[in-house]
């Protein structure tokens, strides 16, 4: 069984998103350790990009803090290699197409493999363009995470049927809409995904309310927690790991 699949064994998966190097690599290491200790079964680690257009400005600020702190792709790989000596949960990298492309797709995937990364998610790489990266991912055994959204509609089956070991479904409350409406749409979408694919489905939904998290997690295999973590990191900086641990623990129990 692949390492990534381990993230989805034994109940629901809580996956914190942590921007690597925000504000420095020591803080990131501490946050990851606390998150794992508090029940995180998958770490989603962001390689900072100057202009993350798919993300909220809050996440862009985290990226910019990390870049200002001096992190770069080489340092992230070195960090990851060292992290693997003490942390064994699966890790998925999230970064933008240009970070991978600019590094050299081959070289990027080889380094992912060497440093113990299990998957890669590229928000600005839709299904149709995945051919730029997929062959190299496969060659190195790195899962290119399949991405779907609440507004994928007629695209769901086409994309889900080709999914590998993990699907990430981006959800949000549309303008002028409510959480309950989003939840209904989420339920329909997941039912359609399930019919087309057996891959575990992680939901990327910007939530920090335990009750809402429970309702969302109940529909799928896990949830990605991003803004709540990034906000704590922004607020507490070097001291954030403790608060991130508490946040993961509270939401794990939800």
């Amino acid at each position: 069984m692949s390492k990534l699949k381990e993230a989805f064994l034994n109940g629901k998966t809580l996956a914190p998103f942590i921007t690597c190097g925000d504000p420095n690599l020591q803080a990131t290491a501490a946050s990851i350790r606390e998150a794992v200790k508090s029940g995180a079964k998958l770490i989603v680690l962001g390689i900072p990009f100057s202009d993350p257009t798919a993300e909220a400005p809050l996440l862009q600020e985290a990226s910019i803090r990390a870049l200002k702190g001096g992190v770069n792709t080489d340092k992230v790989f070195a960090f990851m290699k060292e992290l693997r000596e003490t942390v064994s949960v699966p890790v998925v990298f999230v970064t933008y197409a240009n970070v991978v492309f600019s590094y050299g797709v081959d070289r990027f995937m080889e380094n992912c493999d060497k440093s113990g990364v299990n998957g890669l998610m590229i928000p600005d790489l839709p299904y149709e363009e995945r051919g730029d990266f997929l062959p190299e991912c496969k060659k190195c055994g790195i899962e290119l995470v399949t991405q779907l959204a609440l507004n994928s509609d007629n695209r769901i089956e086409m994309i889900a049927k080709d999914a590998g070991e993990m699907i990430c479904l981006t959800a949000k409350i549309a303008a002028g809409s409510t959480f309950d409406e989003a939840l209904t749409k989420l339920k329909e979408t997941i039912e359609r995904i399930r019919k087309a694919s057996g891959a575990p489905c992680l939901i990327d939904f910007d939530l920090d309310d335990a009750d809402q998290v429970r309702k969302v997690v109940g529909l799928a295999d896990g949830i990605l927690i991003s803004s709540a973590i990034v906000r704590l990191q922004a607020k507490y900086g070097d001291e954030a790991s403790k608060y991130i641990g508490e946040c993961v623990e509270a939401l794990s129990k939800a």
Partner: peptide, 18 residues
């Protein structure tokens, strides 16, 4: 779709594809 030689394409998040 939308290529000019190697350039162009549609590198947008899934949320924008439709």
């Amino acid at each position: 779709k939308g290529r000019f030689g190697i350039h162009g394409g549609q590198y947008v998040p899934e949320t924008l594809m439709n």
